[in-house]
């Protein structure tokens, strides 16, 4: 294994170039002075200026964030319940259907989820008079439904990994079942809850297809706004918006990575210390 895998490293470099050249190009062209998005016309920040003065973008972003916050939180609660149910209650009536229901949305094409939700909402409105109007509520409900199963997957996996003896140990030491859940189970699966929440949040923030079906008058999320603009072709202000999103995500991920890396290094150092103290 000491030989350098030249071929592999070459492909890796090519792959990363493939990943990042389009994004970089987009960022560079966001500073393009020309109206024509693909022809360089000198450096300018005017698209950023026009972006910030655009009320529509701000409103859409706010709406998207609201929906993502609510749906991620609800999805985490529901998804965690489902994950705990699957991991802890081995046998219950309808378990097969239940485990089918938490996997199916993962592989269901978004178009189908979209039209089925829309037909459901339209028919419900006709049959029981609810929802009166599609928009914020219907988008949020659809987002909760299809992001909760991601949370379920993450939580279920973590629950299966966890040493069940620690729950028994808590009981053995006098904790009643709710105390076991509060003191042991939830703290131990909290990383899974956090990553499940983040996943649900991003899924909601990023979704176009399901949102476009379940939306109604006046409810334009950021992806829907971008979608309507992009359908007309490449425009420089979208480049500017994209660059800002990439920057935000990049900074967040880099920070998270840095924190995690630090924690990992400290953990390793502490473990080494533990071994030494063992002697």
């Amino acid at each position: 294994m000491t030989r350098r895998p030249v071929f592999l490293i070459t492909v890796l470099c090519f792959g990363f170039a493939f990943f990042y050249i389009p994004i970089l190009s987009m960022v560079v062209y966001s500073f393009n002075g020309s109206r024509l998005a693909t022809v360089w016309g000198g450096f300018s920040t005017k698209w950023y200026v026009s972006l910030f003065s655009n009320r529509q973008v701000g409103a859409a972003l706010l709406l998207s964030l609201q929906i993502a916050l609510i749906s991620a939180t609800m999805a985490t609660i529901l998804g965690a319940m489902a994950g705990i149910a699957l991991a802890r209650f081995r046998r219950f009536r309808g378990r097969t259907l239940f485990s089918g229901l938490v996997t199916a949305p993962l592989i269901m094409p978004e178009v189908i989820t979209g039209i089925s939700s829309l037909m459901f909402f339209i028919l419900m409105a006709q049959w029981v008079g609810w929802p009166g109007q599609r928009g914020f509520t219907t988008i949020t409900l659809a987002h909760i439904t299809f992001s909760m199963v991601f949370v379920t997957t993450v939580v279920h996996a973590r629950m299966l990994q966890m040493d069940r003896a620690i729950e028994e140990a808590a009981m053995d030491l006098g904790a009643r079942p709710w105390q076991v859940l509060r003191d042991v189970t939830l703290p131990v699966i909290s990383p899974a809850l956090l990553s499940g929440w983040l996943l649900a949040f991003t899924i909601s923030l990023d979704d176009v297809v399901i949102t476009s079906f379940t939306t109604g008058p006046g409810a334009t999320t950021l992806p829907l706004l971008i979608w309507s603009k992009v359908k007309l072709g490449v425009t420089p202000d979208i480049n500017a918006l994209a660059s800002l999103i990439v920057l935000t995500v990049g900074v967040c991920v880099a920070l998270a990575g840095l924190v995690m890396n630090r924690a990992e290094k400290r953990r390793l150092a502490e473990e080494r210390l533990a071994y030494r103290s063992n002697e």
């Binding site: 050249i21 389009p22 994004i23 190009s25 987009m26 998005a37 992806p223 971008i226 979608w227 994209a242």
Partner: peptide, 24 residues
């Protein structure tokens, strides 16, 4: 990382590259 950026914008990035007048 690209995962966390918008899916739509990743598609859009290629629209910029593939257009007739683009540098790419």
């Amino acid at each position: 990382l690209p995962f966390w950026t918008s899916f739509l914008l990743r598609v859009y990035a290629w629209m910029g590259l593939m257009g007739r007048n683009s540098w790419f």
